[in-house]
């Protein structure tokens, strides 16, 4: 159904907006990172929504299926392939960010972004 596709695209943008809000305005760094993962999920959902073909079939050739009929009815496999790559990229960047946060927590003892990532030049002056 065409409405499903439109609703999916709106959902993806809603996820992106929620994530952007969290990444900009929330002070807790772990919540910031959760928000960033929502942005990535929203982008993934958007690209999958492009590949969706209303009334189509899953792009897997079953036995006894005519290849010509399949080629004109299967949904679009390129966006699915791109999203597979993108999901793993998102998980990898998330892991690196969390590792940095864990080490920095040991130094500062707080998860507040305004303390942890304050302007570095000011931190240096404070230390002097």
């Amino acid at each position: 159904m065409a409405e499903t596709q439109l609703a999916i695209l709106f959902t993806s943008i809603a996820l992106v907006v929620i994530g952007l809000y969290a990444a900009i305005f929330v002070d807790n760094i772990i919540k910031k990172i959760i928000g960033i993962s929502f942005i990535e999920e929203g982008a993934n959902l958007f690209i999958v929504g492009i590949g969706y073909k209303a009334g189509g079939i899953v792009p897997i050739l079953m036995p006894n299926m005519d290849p010509a009929w399949f080629a004109s009815n299967a949904s679009y496999p390129l966006p699915y392939g791109l999203v597979l790559t993108s999901i793993v990229i998102g998980a990898s960047t998330l892991a690196v960010m969390l590792a940095l946060v864990m080490v920095l927590y040991r130094k500062y003892g707080t998860l507040s972004t305004s303390v942890m990532l304050a302007d570095t030049s000011k931190q240096e002056e404070y230390n002097e």
């Binding site: 990172i33 946060v101 080490v103 130094k107 942890m116």
Partner: peptide, 14 residues
């Protein structure tokens, strides 16, 4: 260097 790396990473992840 870790603080700078985390900042760069967060901006990059947005």
């Amino acid at each position: 260097s870790y603080e700078m790396a985390l900042k760069y990473m967060i901006l990059g992840a947005i």
